[in-house]
Amino acid sequence: MFQALGTHGPVLSPMTSLVLDIGLLVAAFWLLATPSKKSLGDTLLLLTLVLAVSAARVLMQPLPNIQPVTVAALIIGAQLGARRGAAFAILVAMISNAIIGNGWWTIFQAIGWASVAVIGSKFAIIANGELQRNRLFVAAIASAFVFDLIVSFSIIDSSTSIVSFLTYLAHGIPYDLLHALGNLTFAVWFGTWFADVVAEEIVVEEVELMSEESIICHA
């Protein structure tokens, strides 16, 4: 199943890689298949966000541990809810890794960003339709460490002791801090705008949905 063991976990065989991708895809669609009705526009919006943020991640790959996905997952989790935020996170991890490099770590990155989306949905970053900037900043910084910790679990195998894992984490602290700083910068510069983009589109869709329902009722 696994071809070898490496520092970032097992090196996957093509079949395992395929199974992993299918598993992630199923998880994403399951998360999207919520009981409430979703319009086509709603789905397209999410798809657009997935593609745009994936592209941003690929473009920013030369910058060490600058992760635009983290803040995006946080805000989408806050605006669209945990399920769609997690689905967004999984899809972005899959699509961007298809270009950057797929492997065992993809599943941990997907879980990491999905966790960030859940944090976004629970941390009251949006209250009364308003973005709580200070809460966003705190969450953006904290999310960096949460995500990096989850992704670090990918190195664990039968030979990894607690001491060696902690040493590994200690080595990565400068990059964790850089991730946090990058998140803060994204949140400061684009947080409000991005939250508005997601919110505006939803409002329009909801209006359209309400209009359709209204027409049906009149008929």
Partner: peptide, 21 residues
Amino acid sequence: SILLILLVAIIAIPTLSTQWS
């Protein structure tokens, strides 16, 4: 200022991380 700090951090991270390790 935050952008400036990020810029400096990106420039300095290779050296800093080596020393840190």
